[in-house]
Design a protein around this nucleic acid. Sequence first.
DNA 1: CTATTTGAACTGACTGGTCAGTTTAGTTAG
DNA 2: CTAACTAAACTGACCAGTCAGTTCAAATAG
Lengths: 220, 220
Amino acid sequence: MTTSQSGDSPAGSGDAQKKLRPARTNATRQKLFEASMELIGERGAAGVTVDEIATAAGVSKGTVYYNFGSKSDLIAQLLRHGVDILMARLLSVRDDSADPLAAMEEMIGQAMDFMAEYPSFARLWVSENWRTPSEWQDTFAELRGRLLAVIGSAIDGVAAAYPVDPAVSRGSLETAIFGACFVVGLDRQTYNPERTREQSVAAIMASMRGYVVKQPPARA
Amino acid sequence: MTTSQSGDSPAGSGDAQKKLRPARTNATRQKLFEASMELIGERGAAGVTVDEIATAAGVSKGTVYYNFGSKSDLIAQLLRHGVDILMARLLSVRDDSADPLAAMEEMIGQAMDFMAEYPSFARLWVSENWRTPSEWQDTFAELRGRLLAVIGSAIDGVAAAYPVDPAVSRGSLETAIFGACFVVGLDRQTYNPERTREQSVAAIMASMRGYVVKQPPARA
DNA sequence: CTATTTGAACTGACTGGTCAGTTTAGTTAG
DNA sequence: CTAACTAAACTGACCAGTCAGTTCAAATAG
């Protein structure tokens, strides 16, 4: 409220211009994102102090409050940051429409890669996603919607090219696949590091193969 | 550590006798489990105070430390308590061996019922399960193993009765199904209350139908 | 080309408050 | 009679957020 830095604080949550911001700030924010993701993924949002985050980022506590208005804001923007990265990867899958099932498989592979590269983000997501009420409820709802839309359209692609089981609702399937990506990715990193990327993808893809109602272009 | 209540504290984490304990204590512990599950599911283990738990359970703070040695102990035993309930439900599914797929489906249904009845436990589980390092790491590893064993044997039943896709490893499939149960259950409660139990079960069962390698009992 | 100014970015000590866990003396119920 | 529980005060650590002050690069002035 009574924030009064010497200059105008850029902490604005509704940040309009990302690129226009001086280089130093962007670097600082990036460092803060990385440190936060790591620490919060390990010990949970409530279990990490702002001091720790600042120290890990090689920055003073005040800088955190200069760049973000509050711990809560930092986390909200961290969530957006991570989802931006994941979305970019999912959308990088060319929608060949040659084979929607193959596109789906590649997408799941991209998701697995993301989980392997940012396991802390995945932990943060599953830790806070279903809390209710939570400070980030709206943020989660929005981001979840965006991600599910991408998966949903991939499922639609499959449903358009193959006969599918009408007893399986698209929404539930979206959720099951989306959730399985997080959980399988996290389990691999935590309990089964020997599991390969391909095994994990295959296990998740099983639901897609069970969704299409077997027959023509299955193999060969 | 330096715990020393007036009487001999029964807080022992390696509690041998549950039933031998006087009725009052069991009732108190039950109330504390319920209150903890609710609060911790909502705000996370670190976000809830012992005072709050005690108040919600209608009990004094000292009682918490009398029955459990610490907040950490309370949570560890809470995890065991919840898993006991879930295990009992999963094992209640009669292994007809008439149709292993049907048994699997009923098991997933039981899991969905559990998630609907104890959503807070599910939240607690996914919130803390993949943290590393964590005070409950060993507890989680053990409980996870127990649950996966049950699911695994159900999968084995299917694999024994149907031709299955060898490219899908049993372990990854276990994980995917186990995780999907939690995630689909939580998503239903948080974001899609209109989703039916059957839709959710069908979505998760899709992976089992994709696991068996086409043919006889697909469709008329 | 040097001196001065400006203000965004950053610092870190400090404050007010919270919390886990302890202790004690007394009360209740089986 | 004794295990279980209460109530309330206390400790020591910790933490989110604040704010007065510092740094420095770039703009402006001489």
